[in-house]
Write a protein that binds this DNA or RNA. Structure first.
Lengths: 208, 208
DNA sequence: TAGATTGTTAATCGATTAACAATC
DNA sequence: TAGATTGTTAATCGATTAACAATC
């Protein structure tokens, strides 16, 4: 069942969902492609076209019922239920990720943490017990975990990734500043704030 | 001097730069569009086309001298020198950002931190003194800061952004899960790990 | 009903790829 | 020289936008 829906469309759905959840929070019950587009800086035509890949969620003349559209988008993205996530790396970055509340709030539950430093193994970050990287196969397997976040130094990222993939992980959020090689059925997304900063400095005039 | 170079090209340059810096670190001195493309999962034609917007950096038959291409890309992106950056928000997320070493290493120096909580003001995170959000105009002005990172709760993000923009900030890296309204000469980039996770769950089969 | 907004089609626009002469 | 790889042009591909009939 290979999807024929362009990935660029998929990449916008979470943005729509987030904006709609916010609108709901602000007390709105109905919105239109025009209003949503204005908020997001996206054309109304694009929003309607994107949504039309998945069904007719609106009503002519009145627009979209927010609660309904939120439900539908959550279903499309498969985020109505909670996902278990593994975190590899319990250094500064990994610890910050473990403590960040934004994941749990939005349906991603950190189920286990791994690190390679012997002195950290067996200790805890918040409520999470730190496992050895060597235990990735058994722990990931036992929990049937499909999603992992990688927060290890660049030189360790590919090794850790290979272990995760072998253990059955199909989606990786990589915080290490390096491109990962994975099989074609494994998805990778990258988070590197410096990349975003460098993209913006192009447009700035450097003044010391 | 409005640039005619597509933003999508600009968005790839930092990726190229990062990969080239890594190649250099691994001891390579020369590479080709084919090799670089293989590493990044990008076609060689695209790399050559992207680079050709800025000049001829390679040699037929031999490819690109890495050190030269790194220098050129740094110049294009204006990251040869250090940029001062303001950080707003000294909560869990802000503190983690302040402690993260990856910025300094790659030319972004956190010059000041702001928070609105009276009990935090005057205290320090690492070596950084926390200023009041009310002091954004004076502190940003005094340092002539052009880049800011926003790590405050969603409901405070727009207010803080308005203050930054008024103070002269032209580039914002926003960690708050909300779309910001800014004038057209101000650049915004978003970091929201949950958005990336939700983009990947679309392709997964949910198994509880 | 009249006004508003959807879903969809066709037209436009822009980005990627293929191909190759130039040349190191 | 022969082989390799660039920079660039033209062809293809895909995404966005404009427009409007359908209809709430």
């Amino acid at each position: 069942m290979a999807s024929s829906i362009p990935d660029i469309v998929i990449s916008r759905l979470p943005i729509y969902l987030r904006a709609l959840e916010r609108l709901a929070q602000e007390g709105y019950e109905v919105t239109s492609s025009l209003e949503l587009g204005r908020r997001l800086g996206i054309s109304s035509a694009q929003i309607r076209k994107d949504l039309s890949h998945f069904g007719g969620f609106g009503k002519q003349g009145t627009g979209y019922r927010i609660s309904f559209l939120v439900d539908q988008l959550r279903q499309v993205l498969k985020v109505e239920n909670e996902w278990k996530v593994a975190l590899v790396g319990a250094g500064d970055l990994g610890s910050a990720i473990a403590r960040y509340k934004g994941f749990e709030d939005r349906g991603f539950h950190i189920a286990c943490i791994f690190d390679s430093a012997p002195e950290k193994i067996g200790k805890q970050i918040d409520k999470y017990l730190i496992h050895a990287v060597d235990d990735i196969p058994s722990v990931i397997g036992a929990h049937a975990i499909k999603i992992a976040m990688v927060a290890v130094p660049a030189q360790a990222a590919q090794f850790v990734t290979d272990a995760l993939v072998t253990a059955g992980v199909k989606a990786i959020l990589n915080y290490a500043p390096i491109n990962l090689k994975v099989p074609s059925d494994v998805h990778v997304q990258y988070i590197d704030p410096v990349i975003h900063l460098q993209r913006m400095t192009f447009y700035l005039n450097y003044t010391p």
